[in-house]
Write a protein that binds this DNA or RNA. Structure first.
Length: 474
RNA sequence: UCCCUGGUAGCUCAAUGGUAGAGCGUCCGACUGUUAAUCGGCAGGUUGUAGGUUCGAAUCCUACCCGGGGAGCCA
């Protein structure tokens, strides 16, 4: 049985960082490139995804199969190289593996293998999402995504938050966050026929799997509130589904969302934890994925590291919606959509605030109540709710949250304003009826965080397999 | 969903109504303790799909499909 360290030692990252000259090792991975010498030796760059760096394998003609196999190893072939680590006489790497034998697991026909040892466009790679993790960029994105996910759990676990799994399938019809994907076992072809035959047709959901209309969740918040008001600080981290026909570089139909929910916490406390949350995750990823970030900074976005450093080190600007409207109207800037109190801020307004005016993340709070969902706590002014959005340069809204309305009567009143049926939310209302407490929480779009961390401009490249309108390949 | 823009060789792109080209990659050869190596050569295309206009269409028109940028919706 292998111990934890033994597993790490099998990876090329370990050999490249910690391998010592003289060690006998076997390296396994995929060929990134091969360079031959007429003198009778070849260099193979081997990568197994554990690191940005490749391990250089030195193979000379005495290795069995050199002429027939090694000299024809194509990009993408999977091999094991057994031999001894030596200090590298060449530039660019500390050590290399001098091979005694090469085992080929699988070759990759260069006539048809789509990956070449040159840069490909992200759009092209998106069409071969089953192979793109083998590239530098997508390997790095995967490592950053992994490190960020781990950092998120660490952040909350270190603070005593409980990880809660909220349901993926929900029957509360109107969570208020956009169109939902319907889940059904009813035979749609039959339903369509019935409708044709009778003209008018109403679906009888009592015949459906759950006995009522069901959908994929658009948010775990309402359920997270149940746990927050019984077990204390908690968070969800799971998939979320929105059936909006959004075709942008910032939207996915299936994405991952982090939603902490905290009892005995007000809007201030919510902003405090959200800010330290982002800073901690950014710091953690900068530490653990330094090499990957250097790569992004060089090839993807020359300002990524600067941006992340600035996020880590500066206090987020906290501005009320009213103040923001004031700043925008006094900016002298002519916006396509004019600004006035009560309007929803447009992308151009958000960008002006984060990219031009403050040049750092901005927390906007106390929005007009007409703009925000029913569950957000009303301020005493009667006009605003205790909402807060965190906007970051380039991406826009990365976090949306609020203090929740804990007063039963006010909440009912708000639901009436939105024409929401109380019966559908009976359990949500009972949280206010029995032992209600002030509480707050927020939602973070995980892929938008990955965009921020990597500098990747399209969110479709920040999730292994993207689901967007007209696309559910792989 | 709306606006703009694009779809030509394996990849990235040229060719604005008149014989479809280049670079990179592949393959072959030369050269080198090499570094996305370098140099030479060969091969490689029913121009997204379906119609239309024209003597002639990659090029103009229509519809559709798909990509990119922006907007809305939001995370």
């Amino acid at each position: 049985m292998l111990g934890a360290e033994d597993y790490k030692k099998r990876r090329l990252a370990y050999l490249i960082e910690k391998g010592q000259p003289g060690e006998a090792v076997t390296a396994k991975g995929w060929v990134r490139t091969r360079r031959d010498s007429k003198e009778g030796f070849s260099f193979i760059e081997l990568n197994d995804g554990s690191s940005m760096k490749n391990l250089q394998i030195f193979v000379d003609k005495t290795v069995p199969g050199y002429e027939d196999v090694v000299k024809h190893l194509p990009v993408g072939a999977s091999i094991a190289a057994e031999g001894e680590l030596k200090e590298s006489p060449g530039k660019g790497q500390r050590i290399e593996l001098v091979a005694k034998s090469i085992t080929v697991y699988g070759t990759a026909d260069p006539e048809t293998y789509p990956l070449q040892k040159k840069r490909h466009s992200f759009e092209f790679l998106r069409e071969i999402a089953h192979l793109r993790p083998r590239t530098n960029t997508f390997g790095a994105i995967a490592r950053v995504r992994n490190a960020a996910a781990f950092a998120i759990h660490s952040f909350f676990q270190a603070r005593g938050f409980m990880y809660v799994n909220t349901p993926i399938i929900t029957t509360s019809d109107c969570e208020g966050a956009g169109h939902m994907f319907q889940v059904t076992t009813l035979d749609l072809a039959k339903l369509a026929q019935l409708k044709n035959a009778k003209g008018e047709f109403e679906v009888d959901y009592t015949q459906d799997f759950f006995g009522k209309k069901a959908s994929l969740t658009v948010s775990g918040q309402l359920e997270a509130e149940i746990f927050a008001t019984s077990l204390g600080d908690c968070y969800t981290f799971g998939p979320t589904f929105r059936a909006e026909n959004s075709n942008t570089s910032r939207h996915l139909a299936e994405f991952w969302m982090v939603e902490p929910e905290m009892p005995f916490t007000d809007l201030e406390g919510n902003m405090d934890i959200a800010e330290s949350f982002i800073k901690t995750v950014v710091t953690e990823v900068m530490t653990k994925c330094a090499e990957d970030l250097d790569f992004f900074n060089q090839w993807v976005d020359k300002t990524v590291i600067e941006t992340l450093t600035s996020i880590r080190e500066n206090r987020f600007e906290r501005v009320s919606y009213t103040e923001a409207v004031d700043l925008l109207t006094k900016s002298g800037k002519s916006f396509e959509y004019p600004v006035s109190w009560g309007i929803d801020l447009q992308s151009e307004h958000e960008r002006w605030l984060t990219e031009e005016h403050f040049k750092k993340p901005v927390i906007l709070y106390n929005y007009p109540r007409t703009l925000k969902p029913f569950y957000m706590k009303c301020n005493d002014d009667g006009k605003t709710v205790r909402a807060m959005d965190i906007l970051v340069p380039r991406i826009g809204e990365i976090i949306g949250g609020s203090q929740r309305e804990e007063n039963l009567e006010t909440l009912k009143q708000r639901m009436a304003e939105w024409n929401l049926p109380e019966a559908e939310y009976w359990w949500y209302l009972e949280l206010r009826k029995y032992g209600t407490v002030p509480h707050a929480g927020f939602g973070l779009g995980f892929e938008r965080l990955i965009q921020l961390l990597t500098g990747m401009t399209n969110i479709r490249d920040c999730i292994p397999f993207h689901r967007t309108p007209k696309n559910a390949e792989f």
